[in-house]
Design a protein around this nucleic acid. Sequence first.
DNA 1: TTGTAAGCGTTATCAG
DNA 2: CTGATAACGCTTACAA
Lengths: 361, 361
Amino acid sequence: MPEGPQRPRRGATTIEEVARAAGVSRQTVSNALNAPQRVRPETLDRVTTAIRELGYQPDQSARSLRSGARRTLGYLAPVDDPLDPNPLMAGFLEALVDAAGAEGQRVLLFRPAPPAGDPVAAIDELVAARQVDGLVLADVLAEDPRIAHVARLGVPFVSFGRTGPGEPQHWVDIANDAATAEVVRHLAALGHRRIGYLGVDEQLPWMAARRAGFLAEARRLGLSAVALPAVALPGAALPGAAGERREAAAAPSAVAAVRALLSGPDRPTAVAAGSDLLALDVYEAVRAEGLAVGPGGVAVTGFHDTPLCRHLHPALTSVRLPLRAIATALVGRLLGRVRGEAVPAAGLELPTELVVRGSSA
Amino acid sequence: MPEGPQRPRRGATTIEEVARAAGVSRQTVSNALNAPQRVRPETLDRVTTAIRELGYQPDQSARSLRSGARRTLGYLAPVDDPLDPNPLMAGFLEALVDAAGAEGQRVLLFRPAPPAGDPVAAIDELVAARQVDGLVLADVLAEDPRIAHVARLGVPFVSFGRTGPGEPQHWVDIANDAATAEVVRHLAALGHRRIGYLGVDEQLPWMAARRAGFLAEARRLGLSAVALPAVALPGAALPGAAGERREAAAAPSAVAAVRALLSGPDRPTAVAAGSDLLALDVYEAVRAEGLAVGPGGVAVTGFHDTPLCRHLHPALTSVRLPLRAIATALVGRLLGRVRGEAVPAAGLELPTELVVRGSSA
DNA sequence: TTGTAAGCGTTATCAG
DNA sequence: CTGATAACGCTTACAA
């Protein structure tokens, strides 16, 4: 491991210089920063001015070493399938950084060391090096080994996505079932009586919940509903020929399944998809059957509300996730736990928002 | 600003305990870690064993305070237009974290404080608090104020995206013009003689380069080429009606422009798009004109090779970016600069890869 | 090769 | 409310 004689920012303004400039002791500057109410207003003013004029900011390493607070939260980036990456990772990260920043916290991104890295080992490293005050986990699965591990470690943590019944309930999640239930009600209000659902990989708890919410609401409303079985994802790359890269044609299983549904005896007049990408397959199936996407033909809805929705024709109705609210709730709960406050040990379920566009209106 | 009595991981194993366990001095443990060649193999072995048994890892804050090396790189997340987010942010971040991790560095994500935050202020805060050894900037514009600022500050930095001629050349970028030139050659090889290009926001240097590369190569090959003027992005949200949210229909300007092109006298038999999302608009325009997407009708290509490509029908030929190579080059150059090594003050241009799919074959 | 002493910049303790 | 002193855990100089 290469190791250099790095010495960045040596010579930056220190608390000592501020103290001299303001004519007070080092400690008073520290108090002005960390417990302003303990400093006489007039003195505080002098100190604040000196701080501003010198452009002083405390050295975070020194602060951390002394106080124990790292002012940093670790986010374990999910190891995504490159063929089906989490479509909200970027948006969620932005929201997370903003929410953390509002509380004076930074976000440190980390990943298991490739290839085939162990997330548990990555967590151990970060925690052992005392680089973060707490952890944010995402894409939590049932019986997720990461949850068991951080719980055993005793590190403060929260997860985006619910944990199992026997595990600590430090999670925030969207109401996946309520989201697809709202989709069903929306379609029912438009007069649809026979509706279909296209999901993928029902092993994923959030996908299973979307499917369940769809079926339950359809039953409640007395609609005729069919949920297609989980479909495989499009195929992987093939070796290229001459510099260019060629690929196997996308596996048409999702399209074929929807086409079969649409060509059956009681064809649905609307199909909800478990993601915006899957909705693309529905569009294709609808057209391949000689039908039109939209309220007049087959209404279609997606999930995630990615930018893709606006570029489709007709534009795709989709379920939008409250990413900023999720991030704020996660950070709030995590910091409560870090500070040892009494935070409710119960999950928080946040509502989604159905964005209606031309594909269903 | 709320401040709690946090004291995470106090009581973790310290270097002192390792030294005692191994029967050596504190210093020897430090040497074993930072300069193993200075320790007798037999002693090294004893120390290593003690480290492993106690699960010791140095406290990063203490290490940073003493040595000056933060072992952390800051990544300034671009403030994206939510309607048109950088489609590779997630993939690039993953690659960046992996590349940094391979060099023993962490990645700290930061953003200007919303709303309307100033990136320069965000940089100042991070640097003044001495939280990072260097910075990675992305989506660099011409005369980017961030570049001027970090250059003046003297902080080691690199950028994904080239800087202006008068600025430090610490960048890595893809060859945007060569990428679209390759697209043109690909189309020409398929026999296309009249080709079109659809871009967006030519203020963005990378978009301008794609357009230029397209036109130059078409001219060189004697093809008839038309590059459509920059198009506006789809419209923003409208106030919803009853709980549900409704939006203005997507502005059809891109679709309309392509349709006009396709219905003209010398209609192109292929259209290249400056992004995968724009290719969606091309698909729509082609179909609206009663034509088919593909080599038999109108061939279409995209840019970015997002997962979207595989879900289209036919699957979309697209330009793939070497994100891992970019990240590795960025980290390598940045660390060289951090360590004060003599790194070439010249930009690095990396080639893209054309992934051919059904839309053009 | 190994051990000793010092100090990085900050905050906590405790006396004034 | 302020100021001196110690300590957080580690790495760098220097002495043994």
